[in-house]
Nucleic acid binder design. Structure first.
Lengths: 218, 218
DNA sequence: ACCTGAACACCGTTCAAGT
DNA sequence: ACCTGAACACCGTTCAAGT
């Protein structure tokens, strides 16, 4: 490492950008040693910019939320806008499991998350709900979306053929059970796991339409 | 270690029982070294009974589900029975985060989970839904319950006073935002985070009543 | 058959030292 | 001011060796 290859000073933004890149795709963990190597810096240099790894990962998670709300721009119906934003959120969490795990442990209250929360609350208000129901509806849709993303992520990461094979295997396992002890499971095995994305949207619409009905917009 | 203190041969059940005890309470991780110490055995001895740590934790997670269905015994109304089982499930996941993390990564298809699935499907069928909606309703309530548990767990672990303080702080943070940029957030801050358990039950009943309505039992 | 010892290839984090 | 080196206290896992 000669002087002319010595890098410019680190910045928090650069660290987050590189960590964010590393967290994409299959790699579902970022180590500080790998991160240091990609930054061309000693592994412990990031401690000058973040107090610990968790704070860094919160920043990475928040970067994952940047611009999710934009998918609702120009969508007039609040239910459709909510479906668009929350499906987009789920998609981002699926493709970035490390971020999903951070966000699944409670709110980070960082800028993109706050922007997203504002948008969701605004859209839920547009359903004509009383404030208390807006708040509870917000918690409901976030819990459903995060739950769906963390449960579906491992299978989602397998890609289309792997997904189909996995779901086939699970259905076969259930079908092979004793029908006397597990009648519902054996009967319903063929219709379980028919597309995680569709199942999510079904649940989300059920929730949103129930909320809309409470708001007098049903 | 004299011969007379040398322990009896390990069994998979004993390993799971001790790991399950260790995973309770505040400790949200179990290391094989600690586990070995509590078993009075070399850390790597568990590899004779489980192929890797993940398989062990799946067994621990399944132990966490034992008997959850029992809370529905004697409850006639299927909606009330579903609320009872899923609330009990959420409670167990809250008190055992290591198990929650395993179950949040997809189905284990072990005995207690299968028993729980059978019960949930049976109860959803009792709502009079077509099979496809039973399956999608099942995925919906599981995603909501697991999402609620993983999101609420860290704050839940603080105990009642810590919970209240945390929620107060979050509300105060939102209230302090610029009301022009974040109108809904500032307006609704006072009614956010009003008891995670109540919020969960609200969302769950919304979902179940929407399902019951589809089944002609609304 | 069942378990141990020693090692391998990792982690996050602290802190004195360098420039 | 910013980063490095070295160390600390951990991880899960493998595999040859012991009894």
């Amino acid at each position: 490492m000669s002087d002319r290859t010595r890098r410019a000073p680190l910045s928090a933004d650069e660290i987050v950008a590189v960590a964010w890149e590393m967290s994409g795709g299959d790699a579902d963990a970022v180590s500080l040693r790998d991160l240091g190597a990609r930054l061309g810096v000693h592994p412990t240099a990031v401690y000058r910019h973040f107090p610990d790894k968790h704070e860094l990962m919160c920043a990475v998670a928040d970067r994952t939320l940047a611009g999710v709300c934009d998918v609702a721009d120009g969508v007039d119906d609040p239910v459709e806008a909510l479906v668009a934003v929350l499906s987009a959120l789920r998609g981002r969490l699926l493709s970035r499991p490390a971020a999903a795990r951070v966000l699944a442990q409670g709110p980070t209250r960082r800028v993109n998350e706050v922007t997203l929360t504002e948008r969701l609350l605004g859209l839920l208000r547009a359903l004509g709900l009383p404030d208390a129901d807006v708040a509870r509806g917000y918690h409901a849709v976030v819990e459903l979306t995060v739950g769906s993303a963390v449960i579906d992520q491992p299978v989602d990461a397998l890609g289309a053929p792997g997904r189909a094979a996995t779901y086939d295997r699970w259905r076969a396992d259930y079908l092979a059970l004793d029908a006397d002890r597990y009648p519902a499971l054996v009967a319903l095995a063929p219709v379980l796991y028919r597309g995680a994305g569709e199942d999510f949207e079904f649940a989300l619409r059920l929730l949103l339409e129930a909320l809309a009905r409470r708001g007098g917009r049903g």
